[in-house]
Amino acid sequence: MSAVKTRNMSTITDIVRPYASMFRIQFIGQLQYRAAAWAGIVTQFFFGFVFVMMYSAFYGGEAGAVGVPSLQTIISYQWLKQAFLMMVVLWSQDADLLNQIVGGHVAYSLCRPVDLYSLWAARLLANRAARCALRFAPVLILAFVLPAPYGMIPPPNVESGLLFIVSLLLGALVAVGMSMFLYVLTFVTLSSVGPRLFIGAIADFATGMIIPIPLMPDWLQRALAMTPFPHIADLPFRIYSGDIAGAAAGAAIGVQVFWVITLGITGWLAFRVVLRRTVVQGG
């Protein structure tokens, strides 16, 4: 019995190992860019400050704002966006992979005995995690140190804080699941620049990176709720400040899980189709 169990265990590690290894090597590779990280921290902080000042100015105006979250919620939302931007933006991409597709070098990767979709997904996740790892802490620390009303405050309770972390990680997975479609698309168009810019513009807006989704018109918020976009960044940020809490937060995280699975399966299938086409054409 126990011998069989051990073997099963080792099989599982064997299965996971290439993906974990890909994650690690990509993560370390990204950490090399020291100056890029510093520049990123300063840039992120600067943009955070610009947006915080802008929203403060809007909220400071006449009392015409009904049905919007409190200024403090929006400010925390902004700082979280700046700190975790690299985790959740859709336009971040791996130039190497795109070049592999466009240049037709993907055939080499196909020679390896691994599932290419999972391998690439692990790689994209590592890119996000690494770029974020070097940046989020300094930005958050600075944001907490800033005086009210410009600084950010901790979540209202431990539960919100924990749910935020869960939701943020799921959000990163939704982002990876969606961005994998970009690579699928690149297989079809064999040009990466044009469509990417176009989709990036829409995605930035729809994920709440330009203005927070709660500040958009109600009809647009209802429409976006049907898509995966708000489940990338908007949801975790609102869970953080307690804007969405308790059962509502649980249900929303359930929807996130649904999107992770749906995007994963459809992406995997789509990937298989374009790969087969590439192999047949001898790309």
Binding site: F27, I28, L31, Q32, R34, A37, W38, L134
Partner: peptide, 16 residues
């Protein structure tokens, strides 16, 4: 000078 490993990479953030 670059050294291998995540720890060295983090250290290089501050001293090179």
């Amino acid at each position: 000078r670059r050294k291998p490993g995540a720890k060295a990479a983090l250290a290089a953030m501050f001293r090179r």
